[in-house]
Structure formats: C-alpha cells, structure tokens
C-alpha cells in the first residue's frame, strides 16, 4: 500500500519521495549546524577546550 512493488523493488510515490527529501534536508541542515557549532565553540573556548575543570 502506498507504493508499487514489482521486480525492480519498492517504488516510492511522489508523496513519499517528498517526505523523504524533506527529512534528508532537515538532517543535513542539523548536521551542518552541529559542525558550525563545534567550530565556533572551539574558537570561543580556545585551544584548551577539553582541559578544564569538570
């Protein structure tokens, strides 16, 4: 239901493709934001970022 199954495997409907694309983009943005966050925090905290009191 919701997709066609044939000898080539599962074929996504347009709605499923759109949903998957939006999720993939959201994950990509989140990962990019995480990279930027770590970079900026490293600049903020300086090179000894992990050498600090608990």
């Amino acid at each position: 239901m919701g997709e066609q199954q044939n000898d080539d495997g599962i074929v996504l409907t347009e709605a499923q493709k759109r949903a998957r694309r939006s999720r993939s983009l959201a994950i990509a943005f989140a990962l990019a934001a995480l990279v930027v966050l770590f970079y900026v925090m490293t600049l903020v905290k300086g090179p000894a970022i992990l050498i600090r009191p608990i």
């Binding site: 997709e3 996504l12 998957r20």
Partner: peptide, 14 residues
Amino acid sequence: SRSAEPSLATVGDY
C-alpha cells in the same frame, strides 16, 4: 504491519 512501507512522515511530524 507497515514495517516495509516507506515513511510519509514530514519534518513537521518530527
């Protein structure tokens, strides 16, 4: 029994 069906969930759902 929808374990094999591709998800329709959007970012809004999450």
